[in-house]
Design a protein around this nucleic acid. Structure first.
Lengths: 144, 144
DNA sequence: CCTTGACCTCAACCTTAGTTGAGGCCTTAC
DNA sequence: GTAAGGCCTCAACTAAGGTTGAGGTCAAGG
């Protein structure tokens, strides 16, 4: 019976998430359920993919609020198709690319700057990226 | 007067951090001060480099507890030298390299898996690297 | 004298991402 | 007929990284 809905325990087992987290995600609007006669949650099987996407996005550092926003753009009734997922994926991919670039630049400058002890010197590219404060006296200026 | 100690307000202005954050860092053991007759904090000028390193490490994703641990390995009395900073920098550099690798792999798989709609709990390498659950439900298959 | 500004402490509050526990309701098994 | 297991709600708690506010001290300026 491939169309059968899943209980919260089954989704927990399948997804590897605790039941408490599924409840939490539901409160946050990331997933949705219907209820049976006993007021127990019932999930469409498609919730498994949704949860998978949530986990992937989270491990990529996307905050739950943004994941919720992206997921809310999916069709509420029909099963989302390739194009729906691709649209979401692209945004996160670009975001991830930017963060990777930032971290890479940071890493390379860190080796240069903390490692050599120059951090806090006027000319340090990490501490004073634009060299714009050079004549405002000694001392470090903040990153960013 | 290059040896003069700094007040918390001066450190705040120089570092761009609010006074409340400097107090917080002191409670967490990341920085230290002496007190004057009026019980006001006095910081050695070297606190500016320390704060700069904290900011850099934080922007690299190092948690405060680990920053505190690393900083506590610095000489308590003397001004830290190049070798002291290099030792700390290397550990964070390696950590950063690992996280960049993880994020890059994630990004590339994400393009493949969410984007094409294949994110299947059963088969997707992102979601289920060990292929340990059977899922007979309908849905797109991996293209690869 | 009195106000202003910079500083002090301590406690409470905030956000994100959950976890834990108390107290209850159904359904199934012995 | 009662115990166990799975589910329910709601409130409180956790951890990190701070922020905010109340109430108080101290030195300088008008």
């Amino acid at each position: 019976m491939p169309d059968k809905e899943l209980t919260v325990g089954q989704v927990a087992e399948r997804s590897g998430l605790p039941v408490s987290t599924l409840h939490f995600y539901e409160r946050k609007g990331l997933i949705a359920s219907t209820r049976n006669a006993a007021n127990h949650r019932l999930y469409a099987r498609s919730v498994l993919r949704r949860v998978a996407v949530i986990k992937v996005a989270q491990s990529a550092g996307v905050p739950l609020a943004e994941i919720a926003r992206a997921l809310s753009s999916l069709p509420r009734q029909a099963v989302p198709d390739t194009k729906d997922w691709a649209r979401i994926s692209e945004a996160w991919h670009d975001d991830l690319t930017r963060r990777i670039q930032t971290l890479t630049a940071l890493r390379d400058k860190m080796a240069l700057c903390i490692g050599c002890g120059c951090l806090s010197v006027k000319r340090c590219p990490l501490v004073n990226p634009n060299d714009r404060l050079a004549d405002e006296g000694p001392g470090p200026r903040m990153l960013q």
